[in-house]
Design a protein around this nucleic acid. Structure first.
Length: 334
RNA sequence: UCGGGCAUAGUUCAGUCGGUAGAACAACGGACUGUUAAUCCGUAUGUCACUGGUUCGAGUCCAGUUGCCCGAGCCA
């Protein structure tokens, strides 16, 4: 059996653990296979690889009533800017340059404190395609199953040595991912007061307790879709005729592993959404303009690779799932 | 980011009611033992995180700042 050693607790002694323990040897192999499989998968889908700057003036995360997520602010030559918290905006541009869409797999940066479910720098596998919510959800399902099949071929020994089984891989491959709308999940979990919290009057969001309850009930890789429009970022499209959004979160293991959404279509949709979410338009005029230059319906998803590995290895602390430790509250070598 | 806790010797921590700063381990010096070291004796530990306030007097009470820990939040 291979067990993690939690060497992130003492970053200055981490290097020896990294270089000498079977846990990190297995983790390294899994990471490299996921990279290879990701490129293979998108090649079969005819979706184009891209690469972008990691600094930006437009961050995508600090929006929505349900979010006080923080970008990582840096200062270069006296200019305040951010490290990318997501490449979604760049991918929306790249999708307009390519036939089907564009993907990217690189670190994203977040300003919250690290804990068992969060890293300050995580490997983000993101894609944006021409299409709607259904298209991107089915792409996500194909991607995850492609990864699982590939990892079964190449890393079954390592996975079995960590978890004692590879049964959870087969369970996922053998059935379609269960889908439940947010409003239906709320009704089904109405006897659990902690499953949802009220963000604002009559505006609710699911909690990690609620996510766990859904995973317990419907198994790993369960979709919760159509979150309340006001609780999601401005760039997510509104469902016609409802107060919900064209979004989906994919739950597995400890919780949200992948998030996806259909983007606002027209420049007027973008303006309305910025207003309804009370977001200052000055940093996002380009986002409005882009829809005037070329209006395309796009949708995309982002998956946290370490969170996927957490599920893959049936583990519960994401800090064990990175090769080089990063904690923005500390200076760490190497 | 919010809430709670903590900050005293190299380290781990005591410090009562506001009245001159304490222990253990580590370190250093010596003694002794047929010797990679143990044991015994001895020695020194310090901007009590920082700034200000209250007070005759602050490690102790109050305010602010900084740093760390725990919890929550957020997300992928």
């Amino acid at each position: 059996m291979i067990k993690p050693i939690s060497s992130w607790q003492n970053p200055n002694n981490h290097l020896e653990q990294l270089l000498t323990t079977p846990w990190y040897r297995a983790l390294n192999k899994i990471f490299s296979q996921i990279l290879l499989l990701t490129h293979d998968f998108y090649k079969t889908e005819n979706i184009t690889p891209t690469i972008f700057p990691i600094t930006t003036g437009s961050v995508s995360s600090p929006f929505g009533l349900g979010s006080d997520s923080l970008p990582v602010k840096i200062n270069i030559k006296n200019n305040d800017m951010y490290l990318a918290d997501s490449m979604q905006f760049s991918l929306e541009i790249a999708t307009r340059l390519n036939e089907k869409g564009a993907y990217y797999i690189m670190p994203s940066f977040r300003g919250e404190n690290t804990d068992a479910r969060h890293l300050n720098e995580f490997v983000h596998s993101e894609v944006e395609i021409k299409g709607d919510l259904n298209d991107v959800m089915s792409l996500a399902e194909r991607y995850i199953k492609y990864l699982i099949r590939g990892l079964k071929d190449t890393c079954a020994k390592e996975i079995a040595e960590v978890c004692g089984t590879t049964e959870h891989l087969d369970n996922v491959l053998n059935k379609p991912f269960y889908k439940i709308r947010f409003e239906d999940a709320m009704r089904e979990l109405s006897d659990m007061p902690d499953a949802f919290k009220e963000l604002d009057k009559d505006l609710y969001a699911i909690t990690s307790v609620g996510e766990h309850a859904l995973v317990d009930k419907y198994g790993d890789f369960t979709w919760i879709t159509h979150m309340p429009y006001k609780s999601v970022p401005f760039y997510q499209a509104k469902e016609a005729g409802t107060d919900f959004s064209m979004t989906g979160d994919l739950l597995a293991g400890i919780g949200e592993t992948l998030g996806c959404g259909q983007r606002v279509l027209s420049s007027q949709d973008a303006i309305n959404s910025l207003d309804e979410h009370n977001v200052d338009k000055s940093g996002y005029q380009w986002y409005i303009d882009m829809r005037n230059i070329q209006q395309v319906q796009t949708s995309g998803f982002g998956m946290g690779i370490e969170r996927f590995i957490l599920w893959l290895l049936k583990h519960n602390d994401i800090r064990d799932c990175t090769l080089l430790i990063r904690d923005h509250n500390k200076i760490i070598f190497p």
